[in-house]
Design a protein around this nucleic acid. Sequence first.
DNA 1: TGGGGTGATATTTTT
DNA 2: TATCACCCCA
Length: 670
Amino acid sequence: MPELNPQQKAAVQYINGPLLVVAGAGTGKTTVITRKIAWLVRDYGISPRHIVTVTGTNKAARDMKSRVADLLNNPNSNELVISTFQMLGLKILRDHLDIIGYRPGFSIYDSEDSQSLLAKLLRGHSSSKSPLAGAVQRQISLWKINLVTPADAPLSAGGETIQDAAARVYGEYERYLQAYHAMDVDDLTLKPVRMFQNHPEILEEWMKRQRYLLIDDYQNTNPCQHELVRLLAGGGAVTVAGDDDQSINARFGACLDNMKQLQHEFPALKVIKLEQNYRSCGRILKAANALIGNNAHIYDKTLWCDGDYGEPLRVLKARGDDHEAERVVTELLYHKFKHNTDFRDYAILFRDNSQSSVFERVLRERRIPYYLSGGTSFFDKTEIRDVMAYLRLLCNPGDDNAFMRVINTPRREIDTATLQQLSAYAAELGTGLMQASLDAGIERRLTVRQLECLRAFTNWLKSVIERSSLEDPARLVCDMLGELHYEAWLMDTSNDLKIAQRRMENVLELVSWIQRLANQEEDDTSFNGLVARLILTGILDKGNEENPGDFVSLMSLHAARGLEFPHVFFVGLEEGLLPHQDSLTDNSLEEERRLAYVGMTRAKKTLTFSFVERRKRSGEVITCEYSRFLKEIPAEDLCWEDLEREQDSQAMLSRGEINLSSLRNMLNGN
DNA sequence: TGGGGTGATATTTTT
DNA sequence: TATCACCCCA
């Protein structure tokens, strides 16, 4: 096991009170947390089930779990709670659902579910996506994150802004969620906070379980999460780690002030800084330090390292976005060929996702394997959403969204007239569609044939629900898929046999997810709990799946948080893009600078910037200036490569020094 | 039921 | 300017 440096060691072993670890990029923050968990268990004698760790992402939680398991080699290490705030919230709520007016099996709404509900509330009846519903959903989410109740939401009389529209439906939205037996993602942290505030005895009970709390990525927490931490850390048995320079989620309610607040809320707070960087070479650090030096800081720190100084950071200039992509990909290939590296060693980072398509096109043209984060994710695939909807419905028969999604998937000849009658009747009864269809009163409203089709579906569903609490979950899902003739349906609806097979493989992969989740957790093995964790995993992991092999990584700066790559291409460094246009007027230039800082500090060995002279923007081509952030990097560390320099690598390509087909053969293992 | 054509409209970032 | 939704037609 590698030695820790003195600061890291101090952070691991300090347990006399609340601790804040201010950890710069690449200073071994995750190492400190994992080692601390191991230390608490092995040297301090705390049982794994009494340690709660919160991470920024699900992926980070999984990584940390496996790292700690390797470190501990303790059969009880799977009792450690290591999860995101949302998963932790789910666990906290589990045993007290009655207190907040819920039962096991509630649905968890992703933002799309919330939006379609809001669309309905905003315009009477229409489930089609409206831009207004999206904006209202984000506003309500922000309110929840900031602990603003419907009663507190600012409502100006007769106002027409999005905020007014949101304030008008917020309360109704909450009532509908309750009626549908559903929560949105924000509720998963908000409801535990409210519950602990209103029922101190439940907090006390929880604290019997939780002896030590560790929180990672604190700079990206929002006020609601901060409040939860404050409640859970009451006794001061807490370690918080974060880096104020890497806070990049303000638009989603992340509150940098949380890190400052800690000092006031925990007067005994000890602060330990980690400044030795183990990731990047000296020049990259120096440049990143210079850049972030232009921001105000809560905690001053200067990263240093004792490794190589490294090459100058290159700046590629391109004529337009396609040219930029050509240039970057050419340089990437040239570098790979010259240094015999893997594709997975490279990342292309950009400010906004719309920049990815050009790069995708060029990478595809050159047959370079790439992996795009945040693209269509596994959990967005139609077949996965279908099966998930079945699972939701099994847990919560009142979930009308799920009901509507699966009722004719596969086809059941239930016609629109039936559905109209059914939803009208459900509205009369004040129940969900499922309950309405089981009610005797619906029989008079439908033809014999219609009723037969409907009842065939609902009776079958009832039988699966009855089995769901008895059978092994993965087994149950497989049986269900068989009864649905789901594979045959995939064949029917896919033009191509290959595609149908691929879809079936996806479904089977979902089953293996279920299997994995079922094996993972020891204290909630119920079907309802399993499905809740699966749905939440789907929401949290959206577009964040593991890079599955030797692929060039393509992702937004936000998605790159927490990752590292030997070689980084940081593209689109133009005024108006990074910093983003809006940041100039709404006071978020520092946030943009942090974003640039995060991008730069992902790089271990080489960092290459690029920008274009002209970029298409809302239809018209505009002339671009390179980003002010490049000007904030010491000139001696940058190597500008204007258009003429490009000839070099192009020429090498054409002279055969880089031979694409031989490279390809090499990759194919010939 | 699906596909193709036309018109309008949006342009950060995500746990 | 590119995509997306919607509408119309087959």
